[in-house]
Design a protein around this nucleic acid. Structure first.
Length: 110
DNA sequence: TGTTTGACGCTCC
DNA sequence: AGGAGCGCCAAAC
């Protein structure tokens, strides 16, 4: 908890909290970029923070971490994670041509 | 308190 | 199309 000047108390939220909440809202069969994820979580221009945060997720998480790819439509996660991600994406009907997702088709923007 | 670190992104060329 | 260079920014040291 952090006390602000206006005598108001606000619950402090970590980037992990905020990013996880946005992450959970991404619909099946759609993707977002790291930049999108960060921005939607309230951290504009902090794309790297999104990646740094996803990296901390436990292996067994139910959150759709695999729906986050880079702005070029490519998987950024190094192997062996990349294979797991590609498999999960294809399982949701997201096709990768030449290792790339068609962003004009699958990118989710509320 | 200052530096380093990336599952990044954008602009050249 | 694809790579080099540089900017970005909260976390982790």
């Amino acid at each position: 908890m952090k006390r602000l000047k206006l005598e108001v108390f606000v619950k402090e939220q970590s980037a992990l909290d905020r990013i996880c909440r946005v992450l959970a809202a991404i619909p099946e069969g759609r993707v977002v970029t790291y930049g999108d994820l960060a921005e939607m979580a309230g951290y504009p221009r902090a794309a790297r923070l999104a990646g740094q945060t996803l990296r901390k997720l436990p292996r067994g998480t139910k959150l759709p971490w695999h729906r986050v790819i880079n702005a070029q439509g490519r998987i950024s996660l190094p192997e062996p994670g990349a294979s797991r991600q590609r498999k999960r994406l294809e399982h949701e009907g997201i096709t990768l041509l030449k290792g790339r997702v068609d962003m004009s088709k699958y990118r989710w923007r509320p």
